[in-house]
Amino acid sequence: MSGMRRMRAAAVAAMLLALCACGDGGGQAPPTRPVLVERPQPAPGTSRSFPGEIRARAESPLAFRIGGQLVRREVDAGDRVTRGQLLAVIDQGDVEAQSRAAAARLAAAEAQLRRAAADRARYAALAGDQLVSRSALDAQEAAWRAADGEARAARAQAEVARNQAGYAELRAPVDGVIASRQAEAGQVVAAGQAVFTLAADDGREVAIALPESVVADFSVGQPVEVELWTAPGERLRGRFREISPAADPVARTYAARVAIEDADAARVALGQSAEVHAAGTGAALSVPLSAVQGGAGGEATVWVFDDGRVRAVAVEVGDFGAERVPVTSGVAADDWVVVAGGHLLRDGQAARAVDRRNRPVDAAPR
């Protein structure tokens, strides 16, 4: 009997140790989980596609600020340039002559000013000894003031002439690519006449045209997807940046610009063909079947990655398809939805998110 009691006491002690171990483990923070995420996509039948062309966000015509004969052209269409790089030069003979003439006028005006200042000083001394009248001193004071004004004007004209000489060189204002050339060496160009068109390196966009029957379904800031015709099946994130308020009088379409987010200039080349996939306002989104989880009450939920953590979001879903399920409410088009590993997550748990191309995703807090 004593042996049985010892065995029962040992079993009870083992159970107590197990319970204590479980209690200690429950106080630990859940581990950081790796998860696969993607953006919700428009549900089948709710997306529209629009063909377009890759353009630079800023396309600036470059021109000389003075007129003259173009004597040298340093770049051509398609060349990449950096800020401050010399692009073209016009004949500097006239502007250099004007600069020399302005410098000569300045020298003469300053000499006249020095003479007027000396005369004023002499007359002031004579007036102090009462050897000249007050009116004679006032005349010398006026002459000095006039000479001083002439010198100031000549100094300003000389500065303008020096600037004009600098305007004979056309330089790139920013980094970018020469999109087109409108003048050749030997041609006489007027001030303000475009010589080059510069596509700046501050972003890439898709220029599209929206039919008037659907333009009301889209708004500035709305997320879309851009598919390059050279990379079918691979979609880049974008947003409507601009939608024209007036229709083209001939085509009856509305010009729109779609900004490509995180566009690689090496892959997204100027002039390249692209297709914009956009869902109208209020259209349903869809997520993969693996993203939808069942809640405690039977409702559908998905995990959304935001600010380094995941949170469970209740959603309303439609009829399940073979691979995807439409979501009518609960998520937005710019949410990062967990599509793999959701069954291992807890609400508020830290997570490391990657997209389909195994690139880290850093979702900023809303």
Rank of each mutant, 00 (worst) to 15 (best):
E159Y: 10
G297D: 15
N163E: 13
T46A: 03
V35A: 02
V81W: 07
E159W: 14
A161N: 04
V71D: 11
E74P: 00
A207G: 06
T32D: 06
L137T: 07
D76K: 10
L198V: 05
V310F: 11
L270H: 08
A216E: 12
R65T: 11
S2L: 14
A255Y: 04
S219T: 15
L126E: 11
S133C: 02
P360S: 05
V337C: 06
A263I: 07
T197D: 08
V302M: 07
G238S: 03
G186R: 04
A10H: 02
D347E: 05
V310R: 07
F196S: 03
G238W: 10
V224C: 04
G330N: 02
A102W: 05
P326R: 00
G3E: 14
A314H: 13
V226Q: 07
R311W: 08
A216K: 07
R33W: 09
G192V: 04
L62S: 02
V327D: 01
V338T: 03
L228H: 03
A9C: 07
L345Y: 07
V89L: 15
T32N: 01
P245M: 01
A143L: 13
A161V: 05
Q187I: 03
A13I: 08
A274M: 08
I178R: 00
L285I: 10
G321H: 02
T197Q: 12
Q222M: 15
V302G: 02
G149S: 14
P360Q: 08
R309F: 08
A109T: 06
V132T: 13
G192E: 00
E110K: 12
L36G: 01
P249A: 07
D148S: 15
A108F: 10
E261W: 00
G186D: 08
A247I: 12
S180T: 11
R134C: 00
W229L: 14
V327A: 01
A207P: 01
A283W: 10
D362P: 00
L289A: 12
R83E: 13
R105V: 07
R152E: 14
R324Q: 13
S99M: 15
G93R: 14
S135Q: 15
